[in-house]
Nucleic acid binder design. Structure first.
Lengths: 244, 244
DNA sequence: CCGGTCCAGTGGTCGGACCAATCGATCCCA
DNA sequence: TGGGATCGATTGGTCCGACCACTGGACCGG
């Protein structure tokens, strides 16, 4: 006679509910360590499987942080968790390099502009450190790609929006072909000098300058990439005709 | 000596990645049933535990629907499914809502600018149709939110970038509650007139004007939202002091 | 042709075992 | 005595095999 459950309530769901109640009671505050899984499972009267299921969900939503060999800690969800719908979306969508590149070109100049307005002492130090490491790089060495990614990451961090930071990371990951092709073609000297221009503008808190520098940098990367691809496709044709 | 892995990569994470590859290959379409868990686990060479872990994550994000006794089905996440797990997160932690609003403010002005440069006959018709419907709306009726979402969708469609379109859609879903707060506060007249200004700029293929109009519109929305929240929180305080 | 029954297959739950990472106490040596 | 290496207990991560709960469809009887 009562409402029929359209969806069988899973045990993990109930546990999630109980844990949320526990959270809201204020008894659990950020940084605290939860009891061990085996203990919690016994306490709730469920198997460790179901208990873990509940914990994983809360972890995915950013409320928990499980560390192997240590414990599970309470934390307050930040943009890291919120970025997941976007990351999954981009990862699931059919890959279209043009759309992804354009998307990045929409976002990142604004990120540079934001960074210029939100520069802190830490941010200044991080940017200078990145610049120093980039300058010390050997020409076209294998670490250029890594430092390049790191630079963009630091910049997004200075901008202070975790969601945007993670989304940009995902975009870069999906566009790694672009990087491996266009970076060597551009050469580390050119890349680093373009980065330097961006950094200088941010350090000067020149909002428009930072945006413009980043825009030109990305346009340059895109152009180099397209040229390199065009050249590769055409030399491939020639290579087939040559021995070796 | 090499980079230290800050986060141990879990098996379920890898499986999620492989499933995402499968998704975007187009081989899996909505409504399809996945192979049984036992079979999939064998196929990926992992235990059923880890495989289930991956499936549960994709289920939480709205990409899968598991039915006991039947099977696990592929689905395209609608706004509800996608935003529901995260809605609490947005509503209870203002910092997260701010990140999302800022993210939107980064993207959408550029989308408006893009739309202005890529306007086609179809796009013109769609925008005019949207404007007409918006004008015919009763003041603060229930359909205002719907038409508002539709307007932004049409605009992104005119801009012609599928990735950006879907990202903005997700953003709006996550911010749904924000909209229900700020829209009535602004009133439909003001909202529609701001939309109209954007549409006019796009129709005139005025790139900078469209960007600027959208930026001001979003700033207005954000300000209205913050005011409304501030007022709500403070009237809550007063309500506590009053009887009833 | 209809309705009920039964059964194979599927996701959900369980318990136990072992692996792997971490922390901290302990021990050893300079 | 101080510092560093070692080892063990603890904890989350993974695997396995079994069983439960539910569903859809085949089968059967009227």
């Amino acid at each position: 006679m009562s409402a029929k459950p359209l969806r069988q309530v899973k045990i993990a769901d109930q546990v999630v509910g109980e844990l949320q109640v526990w959270f809201r009671s204020g008894e659990l505050t950020a940084g605290m360590r939860l009891p061990p899984e085996r203990e919690l499972a016994a306490q709730f009267g469920v198997s460790r499987t179901s208990l873990r299921d509940a914990l994983r969900r809360l972890e995915l939503l950013g409320y928990l942080d499980a560390r192997q060999g240590d414990g599970t800690y309470v934390r307050v969800p930040d943009g890291d968790a919120l970025s997941q719908p976007f990351r999954n979306l981009v990862n699931t969508l059919p890959h279209n390099a043009a759309d992804l590149l354009e998307f990045r070109m929409l976002i990142e100049p604004e990120v540079a502009a934001l960074a210029a307005t939100r520069l802190t002492g830490e941010g200044r130090a991080a940017l200078l450190g990145s610049l120093k490491r980039q300058r010390a790089l050997p020409d076209n060495g294998p670490r250029l790609g890594h430092e390049d990614a790191l630079f963009h990451d630091v910049l997004a961090q200075v901008a202070g929006n975790m969601v945007v930071l993670r989304v940009l990371e995902t975009l870069r990951d999906l566009l790694r072909d672009v990087r491996t092709i266009s970076l060597p073609a551009a050469g580390s000297r050119r890349t680093v000098s373009e980065h330097e221009r961006i950094i200088q503008a941010v350090l000067a808190q020149d909002r428009d300058g930072a945006r413009q520098a980043m825009r030109e940098h990305l346009e340059d990367v895109t152009r180099t990439y397209q040229d390199a691809v065009w050249r590769r496709d055409h030399t491939d044709q020639l290579a087939l005709q040559r021995p070796g």
